[in-house]
Design a protein around this nucleic acid. Sequence first.
DNA 1: GCTGTGACTTCGA
DNA 2: CTCGAAGCCACAG
Length: 111
Amino acid sequence: MFVVLILTKMRSKRTFNEKIYNKLKEVPFGKVVSYKILAESINSKAYRAVGSCMRRNKYPDKIPCFKVVRNDGDIGKYSLGIKEKIKRLNKEGIIVKNNKVDLDKFGFKFD
DNA sequence: GCTGTGACTTCGA
DNA sequence: CTCGAAGCCACAG
């Protein structure tokens, strides 16, 4: 009873960024994912909240934020700077052109 | 506890 | 094509 209640409460706070975090971990090397795909993969439409959580970034060491781009392929922004983001993307073999990536090639879907 | 803002998206003018 | 508004969730003030 009480346990369930507590767990439920905790879940309401956690679900979001934790799920995003988990999904983001599923993204294989050399692939990127958009905020939208990420949000939808956890049954939510809070695209902005995803960005918010990344920006606040509670887990800077655990979350590969550079793998998250906008739906248009625009890489958006990055805590450490867009330059750094591009650098890291390039390290995964992802081509960034004019601050954009090719989602058809590198976009990962969670099926 | 309500308000504003933000690494976003989509639709209509 | 560009611009503005609405909609979603979390967090700071």
